[in-house]
Nucleic acid binder design. Sequence first.
DNA 1: CTTCAGCATTAACCTATGTTAATATTCAAA
DNA 2: TTTGAATATTAACATAGGTTAATGCTGAAG
Lengths: 246, 246
Amino acid sequence: MNNPLISKYSALTKLTPKEKNTLLQLQSKREIIPAGTEIIRAGQNHKSMYIIEEGWAAHYKLLADGRQQILNISLPGDFICLDATVLKTAEHSINAITDLVVSRLSPEKILDIFSHSPRLAAILCWSSVHDGAILAEQIVRVGRRNAYESIAHLLLEFLRRLDIIGMTNNNTFHFPLTQELLADTLGLTTVHVNRTIRRLRKDNLIEYSDNKMTILNLKKLRQVAGFDPIYLEQDALPFRNRIESG
Amino acid sequence: MNNPLISKYSALTKLTPKEKNTLLQLQSKREIIPAGTEIIRAGQNHKSMYIIEEGWAAHYKLLADGRQQILNISLPGDFICLDATVLKTAEHSINAITDLVVSRLSPEKILDIFSHSPRLAAILCWSSVHDGAILAEQIVRVGRRNAYESIAHLLLEFLRRLDIIGMTNNNTFHFPLTQELLADTLGLTTVHVNRTIRRLRKDNLIEYSDNKMTILNLKKLRQVAGFDPIYLEQDALPFRNRIESG
DNA sequence: CTTCAGCATTAACCTATGTTAATATTCAAA
DNA sequence: TTTGAATATTAACATAGGTTAATGCTGAAG
């Protein structure tokens, strides 16, 4: 199966053909969003929810003086704006880092899932909780890791997330973030990101050019990052039977 | 109404007497958890979910070398471990900062709500999304604000959250965090927290001693923090009618 | 083939925050 | 009353990371 959404959730639980079908139907009509598009701006009313089919998108907040902090980066197979289900307005902005292919979801479809497929509903809830786990790890990265550790950690997070959707190859992956976006993700400056990447290169931990990132020494990189992938691992849904029968 | 949970959700939507009753029943049996207790440790299987009735609790992660990062602090009226609904194990640890009074919730009760009261279910989902919004703002605080701004911002967050549950009085509130916990929340050292609090005091922005915190100049403090409370404001649930009738 | 914009790289210098360590203060336990 | 643990305060010094600014590289637009 070559669909990132289905790859992601198949790792979480065995999907029935009917469930797979429902998920595929959510993705039947696709749209292109060009790189640089602001998908939603903080404070605006939510319009749509999306599944990202291709490309990377940044969730971020702006401060009054122009400082920018990226909260999380969405990859193929991720839902975005799922919180439109319970919030009228967006809490933060989202920007297309690359050209995107997305499926737009109407609120009705999501509500349908909630009323007709308790297991898929649980999966949507899991998605939202999982996003929270990624935010939590981002707080640790920014709050308690130094630049070297924190870049290493973020790269390992991307490696794992891309792995789950089949988008890595021998620890190599397409990496469209500029050093400026990396800086805005990790609360650093571009100059310092550059210095630190140079050091990771010199230490033979990564290879990076032309938007191609290779982890050269996974074990060592994990060590320096203090990376424990557990927060990304698919943790079987509890109460599954109960929800199924309910 | 003197119940923090009900205060919180009444600000979000008008609760029917029946809904209030259901929420009150969740809180009928109370337990005490002494300060310092580790309620759940990251990686352990979830045991229970709770509503905090009294006291403060810290969600945190530990690094291998002992560095500690607090992710969020739960106050009265907050659910904790709600993610046990979809995750088998805990993603982070939770510790009782003060003595706590909690109501323990069985998973069954939560599932009951999901099957019998769509509006309360939506409120639970809102809770989880709201927690995410607080985490997001924490990322900005730690990533892109300096110590002075960031302490100011955190204090304003507490002020607002405590306000909603009726636990402030003329911009004064009980503040049980030590400077060490503040440091672990904001990714700083105790020494620097102390320096910075001293400066906030000298600038006549706050008064702080004996676990009593007073915001002396709300307007100025908001300015220096760049505090926009919108992420804490109760944003009416959309699709309410549809969910009600569904 | 130019030109220009966006990005990466580098250097020199600066500062917010960390480190270490000593000294209060408070308050509960003995 | 003394003692000791936890917390707050302070000072002297060190450094990770910020700032400013210049240079080079690359690839798309003309």
